[in-house]
């Protein structure tokens, strides 16, 4: 503009373009101001802020808490996995002596720590004691219980894959009718936990979308409430970025405070159940105690909730801001 040097006011010398450094400093100063200004605006209506943040908090606490419980469950079952035993049911025609020989042979295998021989007779007695079918067993004229070798693998060979490998190897002996992995139920538990984990992930995703929509809707209302202000700012040369800024920071604060509430909820819930869990573990003579949140989880939850807050407000702002134009 050619008359930029013409002073409008006698007491102000015309210095229109600040230096680059000043511009950058001013830019960050403005961001900091809007950052806290938007928090101040929210703080003026603490009830509304708390309501929205609590919705976010609860929505995030649910999958987070379940995730932590799942990790704990895995830890417990991981401990059980170590005690995996393999039961070898011998063929009916295998004699007592042959079975003893096989047991001795197996004891020499490097993967095996211990072999316990349960003879047909002993097996029958155990079954009679435990099953409660005493009368029915009396009626049998032949012992139906097979002789059994219970194999305990060495500790360094006790992960699920190696035990399975061992079971396969043992199945090759012609005296053995059936190989039964005692850890099979653990694997079933794992499979169930996999399903639950998948479920928690799906739940988490759906609740995250819910959070996105809640923040989006809240910001949409905020935009509608400040419609006049937006029009005025557009009329005096405010860029979309300038207008967007306070709403994005508002989304940030919703996410941040919602994340804090989620963490508090999870923390309190874990505290509440940790007593009974330790009680239960004590009954099983276990040292197990509930693993709480680590820093990684806390950090992830905060980043996630802030991201959802920003994302939700971004959606609202990009959908509704351009609809508001001066007329």
């Amino acid at each position: 503009m050619n008359d930029r040097n013409e002073p409008l006011f006698e007491d102000v010398e015309g210095r229109d373009r600040p230096g680059l450094l000043t511009s950058i400093k001013t830019y960050f100063l403005r961001h900091a101001q809007v950052f806290f200004y938007s928090l101040g605006i929210l703080w003026r209506a603490p009830f509304n802020l708390f309501m929205t943040a609590a919705v976010i908090g609860i929505a995030l606490a649910l999958p987070t808490g379940m995730h932590i419980l799942l990790n704990n469950a895995q830890q417990i079952s991981g401990g059980w996995d170590g005690a995996a035993k393999v039961s070898l049911f011998l063929k009916q025609k295998v004699s007592d002596k042959q079975a003893q020989l096989l047991a001795n042979k197996l004891r020499k295998l490097p993967e095996i720590a211990e072999v316990e021989y349960i003879s047909k007779q002993k097996g029958l007695e155990e079954f009679r004691e435990r099953s409660g079918y005493k009368a029915a067993i009396k009626a049998l004229d032949e012992n139906p219980i097979p002789a059994t070798l219970v194999v305990t693998p060495k500790l360094q060979h006790n992960d699920a894959k190696q035990v399975e490998q061992l079971a396969k190897q043992l199945g090759a002996y012609k005296q053995i009718e059936l190989v039964q992995l005692d850890s099979e139920w653990v694997q079933r538990l794992y499979a169930i936990m996999d399903i639950v984990r998948r479920g928690v992930t799906v739940l988490g995703l759906m609740l995250s979308i819910g959070v996105l929509l809640v923040v989006g809707n809240t910001i949409r209302l905020a935009i509608q409430n400040r419609r006049d202000e937006i029009v005025i700012v557009k009329l005096i040369g405010g860029t979309n970025g300038f207008i967007r800024r306070p709403f994005l920071y508002t989304g940030f604060w919703y996410g941040f405070i919602g994340g804090l509430i989620a963490l508090i909820l999870v923390f309190v819930s874990l505290l509440l159940i940790s007593g009974p869990v330790e009680n239960l573990a004590g009954l099983y003579q276990s040292e197990f105690s509930l693993h709480k949140m680590d820093f990684g989880t806390i950090f992830t939850i905060l980043v996630l909730s802030i991201g959802l807050g920003l994302g939700g407000s971004w959606i609202a702002v990009s959908r509704h801001l351009h609809e508001i134009e001066p007329r």
Partner: peptide, 20 residues
């Protein structure tokens, strides 16, 4: 407000707003 929008430094804003 117009000075904030156009990114003027705070001292300049105070001076010009008061002059206006």
């Amino acid at each position: 407000l117009p000075l904030i929008i156009s990114g003027q430094p705070p001292r300049e804003i105070a001076r010009r707003a008061r002059a206006a």
